[in-house]
């Protein structure tokens, strides 16, 4: 039997995609625990690489910590640094490839403990690299030991009675500290505990990469992140703890925004 064919131009699209997985993420499953916001941080960086259309020109330097396999997750060229040394390796990569966009992705144990010298001096030299600093106030990968960023009183496997200032000193505020160094052009702290803050974090990551594209200097975004597994919480409880314990101690804000970055998305109005 004959069929009645309607003309194509009468067909309207019924829907449009308003969100999809960024193409700068590889099509693989990550090893991160359920609800770990390392995944969120990865997604945001990948979305920014997509939006700025710099994926083909970007080189990642992975660090040691739970994000050690990040080179398998970002669809960019990458190399793996020894624990804490990512900013030093990124310095070399950027200096021999000044046209490339080079970023490190580091945890708080990596960046604020064993790698303190590397991060401080990369910032002091004003290396034109971008640092994504994921602060979850613990050593996640090795089983939940105290980090330099663990809160006072925080129970970890190496501070079972809670962090004691007499014994372990006070937690370090890295975003504020790095903002003091002259080579830093952008140093801010954001949080990943809810949708609104995740969107703000993305804008900051974008500005940090723009600082490098414009060849201005060292840029760093500190992201308050969760570790449900080692905090002994459900993923949603962990986000509440980020909001109620981490954010009050590590205030969100812009600690240094070079005037050439003012007015960008993510910079103060």
């Amino acid at each position: 039997m004959d069929t009645v064919v309607f003309k194509q131009n009468h067909v309207q699209p019924l829907e449009k995609i308003t969100y999809e997985r960024p193409s700068s993420l590889c099509d693989v499953h990550t090893h991160y625990c359920p609800g770990c916001t390392h995944g969120t941080a990865h997604r945001l960086v990948a979305e920014v690489l997509d939006e700025l259309d710099i994926r083909e020109d970007t080189i990642l330097v992975s660090s040691v910590g739970c994000s050690v396999f990040s080179y398998n997750y970002f669809d960019v060229d990458a190399c793996e640094a020894a624990h804490g040394r990512a900013p030093a390796m990124a310095t070399g990569v950027k200096r021999v490839n000044p046209g490339k966009i080079v970023f490190t992705y580091q945890g708080d144990g990596d960046l604020a403990s064993i790698g303190t010298a590397e991060i401080i001096h990369a910032a002091a030299r004003g290396e034109k690299i971008t640092v994504i600093f994921v602060n979850n106030a613990i050593y996640g990968m090795t089983g939940g030991q105290m980090a330099p960023t663990s809160l006072l009183g925080q129970k970890t496997t190496s501070s079972p009675f809670g962090r004691d200032a007499q014994l372990a000193g006070m937690p370090i505020h890295m975003a504020e500290l790095l903002a003091q160094l002259p080579g830093t052009v952008y140093s801010v702290r954001r949080s990943l505990h809810d949708a609104r803050h995740v969107l703000q974090a993305k804008k900051a990551i974008r500005t940090a990469f723009e600082a490098q594209i414009d060849n201005l200097g060292f840029s760093v975004v500190e992201l308050l992140s969760s570790c449900p597994t080692n905090w002994g919480m459900t993923p949603n409880e962990a986000l509440t703890w980020v909001e109620e314990a981490l954010v009050p101690f590590y205030p969100l804000g812009d600690y240094k925004v070079d005037e050439r970055l003012q007015g960008r998305k993510g910079a103060p109005k």
């Binding site: 995609i17 960024p22 993420l25 990550t30 991160y32 609800g35 770990c36 969120t40 997604r43 995740v198």
Partner: peptide, 9 residues
């Protein structure tokens, strides 16, 4: 926006 594993379209 909050999905850590980028599962949602």
């Amino acid at each position: 926006v909050v999905c850590p594993d980028g599962c949602i379209t």
